[in-house]
Design a protein around this nucleic acid. Sequence first.
DNA 1: GCCGTTTTCGGCCCGACTGTTTTCAGTCG
Length: 579
Amino acid sequence: MAETSKKDVAKVLNEIGTMMELKGENPFKARAYYNGARTIETLTEDINSLVESGEIRDVKGIGEALSEKITELVTTGKLEYYENLKEEIPEGLFKMLEIPGLGPKKAKKIWDDLDITTVGELEYACQENRLVDLEGFGAKTQQKTLDGIKFIKKYQERWLIDDVDEASKPLLEFVKNHEKVIRAELAGSLRRHFETVKDVDIVASCADEDRKQIMKEFTELSGVDTIIGSGETKTSIRLESGINADLRLVSDEQFPYALHHFTGSKEHNTAMRSLAKSKDMKMNEYGLFQDEDTLVVCETEEEIFQALGLHYIPPELRENTGEIEYAQNSEIPELLKFEDIRGVFHVHTHYSDGVPGIREWVEFCIEQGYEYLGITDHSKSAFYANGLESDRLREQWNEIAKVREEFPEFTLFQGIESDILPDGSLDYDEEILAKFDFVIASVHSNFNLTPEKQTDRLIKAVQNKYTTFLGHPTGRLLLARDEYTMDLQAVIEAAGETGTFIEINANPRRLDLDWRFGKFAQEHGIKTSINPDAHSLDMLDDIRYGVGIARKGWFTKENVVNAQDVGTVKELLQMKRNE
DNA sequence: GCCGTTTTCGGCCCGACTGTTTTCAGTCG
C-alpha cells in the first residue's frame, strides 16, 4: 500500500478548502477543511493507525465528512471527491490567488465573467483594460493586479531566517534607541523563530505626537529601497535586499496587546480570541476587554495570558499546536535557552569540505566559552565533499591527538559524519567506526528512493550500534528542496528504541529536525543536539537558530545532549555502544 | 463542515485598509 503522509492529506484538504471558496460555497465549510488540514498537519499520532482504528473521528475538528474523506485518502491513496472537484476548477486559479490583493472572490469573478484561468491570460486582460468593467472592480484594482503579477514574478515570498534576522538588527536597534520610543520589540514569525520568514515586523510604543517623526526617520534609514506605504500607525518599507519591513506604532498602554497580536501566529490568535470569547471577553490588537469595552489592564504579555487564566506562552510555541491547553494546565515546560549550550558537535575541517583546521576550531570554541567540541568531517563516500579515506583519516586522528595534548582542559571528541548508503549501512567497517567517539549518520545521496525503501534505509541506519546521532533527518533544504518522502515517525520510533539521538541541524537552510516533530520525538525518549554543521568559524553562531527551532519543538534542556556537562556527555556518547 | 458545562441548530475571530461604492465587499494579517 502506498503510504499517504500527513502532509499529503493536509495538502488535499487545503486544496479542497480553496476550491470551495473558488466555487463560492459557504465560507465556513471551506474553513472547516482548512482547520482540518492544520489539525492533521500537527497531529503527533501516526495517521495510518488513527485511520485504521477509527480514532480519526475523535480528533477535534475532524467530523463525519472529513474523517470519511481522510480514511478514503489514506487507505486507497486517492479521494474521488477531490479528483472530481479538481476536474471542475482550472489549475491556474491557484496561481492567481498568489497575487497580492486577489482572493477567491475576485478570482471567481474573473473566471466566471472573463473566462480567464491563468495568470498569463489575466496579465494580458489587464493590459487590454478588460478588468475595469467587472462589477466590484475598477482602474485601481486592475493596476494593482498588474503590479501584483509583476511582484510575484520578481520576488520570492519567504526568506531564510538568517537573512531576515540580519536585516532586522539595524532596524530594531534604530527603533529601540530612538529617544521618543518607549518600548519596542520584534514581532511576527521572526520572533516565533519560524523556519522561514516573510518580513521584519517591529512593534513600538510612543506618544501620539511623536508618531510622524519616528515614521519619517524610519523610512529614511540607510538600506531602504522603497517606501511601500507610510501612515501614522503602520509603515512598510522594502530594503535593498528585497526584504520588507513593517513598523507599527501604538500607545504604550496598547503595546502588550499589539505585540501579542502581531507576533501571531494567526492560528494562535484565532484560538486566543475564541478563548477570550468563552470567558465573555473580547481580544484584539488594542486590548483585552470585558463588559463590552472595559479594558483589562495589562502591562506585559505575561499579564494578558494571566488575565485569561494561562501560563505564559513563549513566542516560539504560539502555533496553535496545543500550547493553549498546556498553558491552561500550567504544563508549559521550561524550554532550552541559548545559554544552556555547553559544547558543539558537527563541524567540518579542511580535511573534508570545511575551511578551518582542527586547532583553529578548538581555539575558537574555547574563546566562545564552550567546554567541548566534536569534529565530524565527511566520510569516504562523500566524494563531492572530499570525504576521508582511511589513510587521511589516520592523518586526522594523529593531529587530533596532538591538539588534545595542547589543550588538556578542553575536550575534543573524534567524530565523523558518515554517509548512510542506499541500503542503510554506514560506509566504514566496524573496526574503523569503533575508533570514533561518536558518529553522525546522514543521507547525502539517493534522495528519491521509494518511501518504503527510504524509511527502511533510515531505520537500518539508526539501528546500527555505532550511529550516535541521526543527521539532518528530513533532508529538506528550505525554499529549495522538499524533505525525503518517507515515514519519519517510524524512524523516530526506531531511534527511540535504540537510544539514538537526532540532531537539530542549525544551518538556516536546514533547521532539521523539523520542529513539528519535536514533541513526538521527546515522547519517544529522543534526545537531540543543536548542531551547527559549520564549515567556517562564523557559522558556529547558527546554533542560535537551532536553539530557536528546538524551543519551537518544545525541547527542554534535559533532552539536549550538548546542554549537558562534559562528564554526562561522555557517558551519553558511550551508552548505545555499551548495551 | 464542525461543534456544544446554557445549545443537536445556529453560530463560526477581529479590525484595518482599499477600492468600490453611497453603505459595503473583499482581502489581509
